[in-house]
Protein backbone atom coordinates (compact mmCIF):
# COMPACT_ATOMS: atom_id res chain seq x y z
CA UNK A 1 0.00 0.00 0.00
CA UNK A 2 2.89 2.30 0.72
CA UNK A 3 4.19 1.57 -2.74
CA UNK A 4 0.83 2.54 -4.22
CA UNK A 5 0.92 5.78 -2.26
CA UNK A 6 4.46 6.49 -3.40
CA UNK A 7 3.31 6.00 -6.99
CA UNK A 8 0.99 9.01 -6.74
CA UNK A 9 3.64 11.75 -6.64
CA UNK A 10 5.76 9.83 -9.14
CA UNK A 11 2.83 9.75 -11.57
CA UNK A 12 2.22 13.46 -11.04
CA UNK A 13 5.85 14.31 -11.66
CA UNK A 14 6.10 12.21 -14.81
CA UNK A 15 2.82 13.56 -16.16
CA UNK A 16 3.89 17.15 -15.64
CA UNK A 17 7.34 16.42 -17.07
CA UNK A 18 5.91 14.90 -20.22
CA UNK A 19 3.13 17.41 -20.79
CA UNK A 20 3.60 20.95 -21.94
CA UNK A 21 3.53 23.75 -19.44
CA UNK A 22 0.57 23.82 -17.09
CA UNK A 23 -1.33 27.09 -17.28
CA UNK A 24 -1.44 28.73 -13.86
CA UNK A 25 -4.69 28.48 -12.01
CA UNK A 26 -5.76 25.17 -13.59
CA UNK A 27 -5.87 21.76 -11.98
CA UNK A 28 -4.98 21.18 -8.34
CA UNK A 29 -3.23 24.02 -6.55
CA UNK A 30 0.57 24.02 -6.78
CA UNK A 31 0.53 21.93 -9.96
CA UNK A 32 1.70 24.88 -12.02
CA UNK A 33 4.60 25.45 -9.64
CA UNK A 34 6.15 22.04 -10.20
CA UNK A 35 8.05 23.00 -13.33
CA UNK A 36 9.67 25.86 -11.44
CA UNK A 37 10.47 23.90 -8.33
CA UNK A 38 10.47 20.13 -8.00
CA UNK A 39 9.80 20.19 -4.27
CA UNK A 40 6.22 21.14 -5.02
CA UNK A 41 5.63 17.58 -6.27
CA UNK A 42 5.54 16.54 -2.62
CA UNK A 43 2.97 19.19 -1.75
CA UNK A 44 0.83 18.37 -4.77
CA UNK A 45 1.07 14.68 -3.97
CA UNK A 46 -0.23 15.25 -0.46
CA UNK A 47 -2.95 17.56 -1.74
CA UNK A 48 -4.13 15.02 -4.29
CA UNK A 49 -4.03 12.02 -1.97
CA UNK A 50 -5.65 13.52 1.14
CA UNK A 51 -9.28 13.38 -0.03
CA UNK A 52 -9.30 9.73 -1.06
CA UNK A 53 -6.08 7.76 -1.28
CA UNK A 54 -4.80 8.35 2.25
CA UNK A 55 -8.20 7.77 3.93
CA UNK A 56 -8.60 4.67 1.78
CA UNK A 57 -5.33 3.12 2.88
CA UNK A 58 -5.84 4.18 6.50
CA UNK A 59 -9.34 2.69 6.38
CA UNK A 60 -7.93 -0.57 5.07
CA UNK A 61 -5.24 -0.74 7.74
CA UNK A 62 -7.46 0.34 10.63
CA UNK A 63 -10.42 -1.76 9.53
CA UNK A 64 -8.20 -4.81 9.31
CA UNK A 65 -6.81 -4.50 12.87
CA UNK A 66 -9.22 -6.69 14.83
CA UNK A 67 -11.62 -7.91 12.18
CA UNK A 68 -8.73 -9.23 10.12
CA UNK A 69 -7.63 -11.51 12.94
CA UNK A 70 -11.23 -12.53 13.53
CA UNK A 71 -11.73 -13.23 9.86
CA UNK A 72 -8.64 -15.42 9.75
CA UNK A 73 -9.78 -17.17 12.89
CA UNK A 74 -6.61 -16.24 14.75
CA UNK A 75 -8.15 -13.81 17.21
CA UNK A 76 -8.93 -16.41 19.88
CA UNK A 77 -5.41 -17.80 19.70
CA UNK A 78 -4.05 -14.31 20.25
CA UNK A 79 -6.27 -13.97 23.29
CA UNK A 80 -5.20 -17.30 24.71
CA UNK A 81 -1.83 -15.74 25.39
CA UNK A 82 -1.91 -13.90 28.72
CA UNK A 83 -1.65 -10.49 27.04
CA UNK A 84 -5.23 -9.39 27.61
CA UNK A 85 -7.69 -7.75 25.31
CA UNK A 86 -6.78 -4.17 26.23
CA UNK A 87 -3.16 -4.75 25.40
CA UNK A 88 -4.06 -6.40 22.09
CA UNK A 89 -6.29 -3.44 21.20
CA UNK A 90 -3.54 -0.96 22.08
CA UNK A 91 -0.96 -2.80 20.03
CA UNK A 92 -3.32 -3.00 17.08
CA UNK A 93 -4.07 0.72 17.30
CA UNK A 94 -0.38 1.53 17.60
CA UNK A 95 0.15 -0.35 14.35
CA UNK A 96 -2.52 1.79 12.64
CA UNK A 97 -0.93 4.96 14.07
CA UNK A 98 2.46 3.96 12.70
CA UNK A 99 0.86 3.63 9.28
CA UNK A 100 -0.78 7.07 9.68
CA UNK A 101 2.66 8.54 10.33
CA UNK A 102 4.51 6.70 7.62
CA UNK A 103 1.98 7.04 4.77
CA UNK A 104 1.99 10.86 4.37
CA UNK A 105 5.75 10.92 4.92
CA UNK A 106 6.15 8.47 2.04
CA UNK A 107 3.99 10.61 -0.24
CA UNK A 108 5.70 13.88 0.67
CA UNK A 109 9.29 12.65 0.59
CA UNK A 110 8.89 10.49 -2.51
CA UNK A 111 7.37 13.52 -4.18
CA UNK A 112 10.23 15.75 -3.12
CA UNK A 113 12.77 13.17 -4.30
CA UNK A 114 11.21 12.55 -7.73
CA UNK A 115 10.63 16.28 -8.11
CA UNK A 116 14.26 17.01 -7.35
CA UNK A 117 15.27 14.38 -9.89
CA UNK A 118 13.10 15.67 -12.73
CA UNK A 119 12.84 19.40 -12.11
CA UNK A 120 15.08 22.20 -10.93
CA UNK A 121 15.17 22.84 -7.20
CA UNK A 122 15.59 26.29 -5.83
CA UNK A 123 14.24 28.63 -3.24
CA UNK A 124 10.64 27.72 -2.55
CA UNK A 125 7.97 30.39 -2.84
CA UNK A 126 5.42 30.17 -0.06
CA UNK A 127 1.80 31.20 -0.40
CA UNK A 128 2.66 34.50 1.24
CA UNK A 129 5.14 35.33 -1.49
CA UNK A 130 8.18 34.90 0.73
CA UNK A 131 10.84 32.46 -0.32
CA UNK A 132 12.63 29.91 1.83
CA UNK A 133 15.70 27.77 1.27
CA UNK A 134 15.21 24.19 -0.02
CA UNK A 135 16.37 22.72 3.29
CA UNK A 136 13.72 24.67 5.15
CA UNK A 137 11.19 23.64 2.52
CA UNK A 138 11.92 19.99 3.24
CA UNK A 139 11.36 20.76 6.92
CA UNK A 140 7.99 22.24 6.00
CA UNK A 141 7.20 19.11 3.96
CA UNK A 142 7.92 16.95 6.99
CA UNK A 143 5.72 19.27 9.06
CA UNK A 144 2.94 18.84 6.51
CA UNK A 145 3.34 15.07 6.72
CA UNK A 146 3.11 15.34 10.52
CA UNK A 147 -0.02 17.45 10.19
CA UNK A 148 -1.61 14.88 7.89
CA UNK A 149 -0.56 12.09 10.25
CA UNK A 150 -2.36 13.84 13.11
CA UNK A 151 -5.35 14.44 10.84
CA UNK A 152 -5.67 10.73 10.12
CA UNK A 153 -5.59 9.61 13.77
CA UNK A 154 -9.30 10.23 14.24
CA UNK A 155 -10.16 8.19 11.17
CA UNK A 156 -7.94 5.33 12.29
CA UNK A 157 -9.69 5.30 15.70
CA UNK A 158 -13.03 5.08 13.90
CA UNK A 159 -11.59 2.24 11.83
CA UNK A 160 -10.49 0.44 14.99
CA UNK A 161 -13.99 0.68 16.43
CA UNK A 162 -15.55 -0.52 13.19
CA UNK A 163 -13.11 -3.39 13.24
CA UNK A 164 -14.31 -4.53 16.66
CA UNK A 165 -17.91 -4.56 15.48
CA UNK A 166 -17.57 -7.22 12.84
CA UNK A 167 -15.68 -10.35 11.93
CA UNK A 168 -15.60 -9.40 8.26
CA UNK A 169 -12.58 -7.16 7.65
CA UNK A 170 -13.89 -5.86 4.32
CA UNK A 171 -17.00 -4.56 6.04
CA UNK A 172 -14.99 -2.60 8.57
CA UNK A 173 -12.71 -1.18 5.87
CA UNK A 174 -15.61 -0.15 3.66
CA UNK A 175 -17.50 1.42 6.55
CA UNK A 176 -14.45 3.47 7.54
CA UNK A 177 -13.76 4.69 4.03
CA UNK A 178 -17.43 5.51 3.45
CA UNK A 179 -17.49 7.48 6.70
CA UNK A 180 -14.50 9.54 5.58
CA UNK A 181 -16.23 10.32 2.28
CA UNK A 182 -19.50 11.17 4.03
CA UNK A 183 -17.65 13.47 6.39
CA UNK A 184 -16.04 15.30 3.46
CA UNK A 185 -19.35 15.62 1.64
CA UNK A 186 -20.98 17.08 4.75
CA UNK A 187 -18.03 19.45 5.06
CA UNK A 188 -18.74 20.75 1.55
CA UNK A 189 -22.38 21.60 2.24
CA UNK A 190 -22.72 25.23 3.30
CA UNK A 191 -26.11 24.52 4.87
CA UNK A 192 -24.42 22.45 7.58
CA UNK A 193 -21.94 25.13 8.58
CA UNK A 194 -22.57 24.63 12.31
CA UNK A 195 -21.48 21.00 11.97
CA UNK A 196 -18.26 21.65 10.05
CA UNK A 197 -15.86 22.27 12.96
CA UNK A 198 -16.85 18.90 14.44
CA UNK A 199 -16.20 16.81 11.34
CA UNK A 200 -12.97 14.85 11.54
CA UNK A 201 -12.14 15.74 7.95
CA UNK A 202 -12.68 19.47 8.46
CA UNK A 203 -9.01 20.38 8.87
CA UNK A 204 -7.60 17.89 6.39
CA UNK A 205 -6.76 20.58 3.86
CA UNK A 206 -5.62 22.97 6.58
CA UNK A 207 -2.00 22.06 5.96
CA UNK A 208 -1.85 25.08 3.68
CA UNK A 209 -1.38 27.08 6.89
CA UNK A 210 2.08 25.50 7.08
CA UNK A 211 2.92 27.04 3.71
CA UNK A 212 2.41 30.57 4.91
CA UNK A 213 4.87 32.93 6.45
CA UNK A 214 4.68 33.02 9.45
CA UNK A 215 3.24 29.54 10.00
CA UNK A 216 -0.32 29.58 11.25
CA UNK A 217 -0.20 27.16 14.17
CA UNK A 218 -3.82 27.74 15.18
CA UNK A 219 -5.13 25.25 12.65
CA UNK A 220 -2.54 22.69 13.75
CA UNK A 221 -3.72 23.06 17.35
CA UNK A 222 -7.45 22.93 16.60
CA UNK A 223 -6.88 19.93 14.37
CA UNK A 224 -4.92 18.14 17.10
CA UNK A 225 -7.66 18.80 19.67
CA UNK A 226 -10.37 17.59 17.31
CA UNK A 227 -8.50 14.40 16.46
CA UNK A 228 -7.74 13.79 20.14
CA UNK A 229 -11.47 14.00 20.80
CA UNK A 230 -12.23 11.46 18.09
CA UNK A 231 -9.48 9.14 19.35
CA UNK A 232 -10.84 9.36 22.90
CA UNK A 233 -14.47 8.74 21.93
CA UNK A 234 -13.91 5.95 19.43
CA UNK A 235 -11.08 4.48 21.48
CA UNK A 236 -13.45 4.20 24.43
CA UNK A 237 -16.15 2.71 22.21
CA UNK A 238 -13.69 0.21 20.75
CA UNK A 239 -12.49 -0.73 24.24
CA UNK A 240 -16.00 -1.27 25.54
CA UNK A 241 -17.05 -3.24 22.52
CA UNK A 242 -13.92 -5.38 22.44
CA UNK A 243 -13.83 -6.32 26.12
CA UNK A 244 -17.51 -7.25 26.11
CA UNK A 245 -17.42 -9.07 22.81
CA UNK A 246 -17.87 -12.84 22.62
CA UNK A 247 -14.88 -14.01 20.68
CA UNK A 248 -16.02 -16.95 18.60
CA UNK A 249 -13.37 -17.04 15.90
Amino acid sequence: MLVALAAIPILIAIAVRLSSSVPPGRGPAFLDRITQNGLFVGVTGVLVSIPLFLPLTVGVVAGDTVAGEAGLGTLRYLLVAPAGRVKLLLVKYAGAVVFCVVAPLVVALTGAAIGAALFPVGRVTLLSGDTIAPAEAVMRLILIAAYIAVSLLGLSAIGLFMSTLTDVPVGAMAATVVLSVVSQVLDALPQLEWLHPWLFSHYWLGFSELLRQPIGWDTFASNAWLQAGYVAVFGALAYSRFVTKDILS
Binding site: L47, S128, G129, L205, S208, R212, G216
Partner: peptide
Protein backbone atom coordinates in the same frame (compact mmCIF):
# COMPACT_ATOMS: atom_id res chain seq x y z
CA UNK B 1 -2.30 42.20 5.43
CA UNK B 2 -2.58 38.56 4.45
CA UNK B 3 -5.94 37.43 3.13
CA UNK B 4 -6.02 33.71 3.73
CA UNK B 5 -7.80 31.81 0.98
CA UNK B 6 -8.12 28.12 0.46
CA UNK B 7 -4.70 26.92 -0.70
CA UNK B 8 -3.89 30.49 -1.70
CA UNK B 9 -3.16 33.85 -0.21
CA UNK B 10 -3.29 37.50 -1.16
CA UNK B 11 -0.81 39.82 0.45
CA UNK B 12 -0.62 43.56 0.81
CA UNK B 13 2.72 44.71 2.16
CA UNK B 14 3.67 48.27 2.89
CA UNK B 15 7.15 49.15 4.04
CA UNK B 16 7.76 52.88 4.03
CA UNK B 17 7.22 54.02 0.48
CA UNK B 18 7.16 50.55 -0.99
CA UNK B 19 3.76 49.03 -1.55
CA UNK B 20 3.41 45.45 -2.78
CA UNK B 21 0.41 43.37 -3.75
CA UNK B 22 0.95 39.67 -4.25
CA UNK B 23 -1.56 37.04 -5.21
CA UNK B 24 -0.43 33.45 -4.95
CA UNK B 25 -3.20 32.11 -7.18
CA UNK B 26 -1.82 33.58 -10.39
CA UNK B 27 1.56 34.52 -8.91
CA UNK B 28 1.20 38.14 -9.83
CA UNK B 29 2.87 41.04 -8.10
Amino acid sequence: IQILDKMAERDLVRNGRELWWYSSKDQST
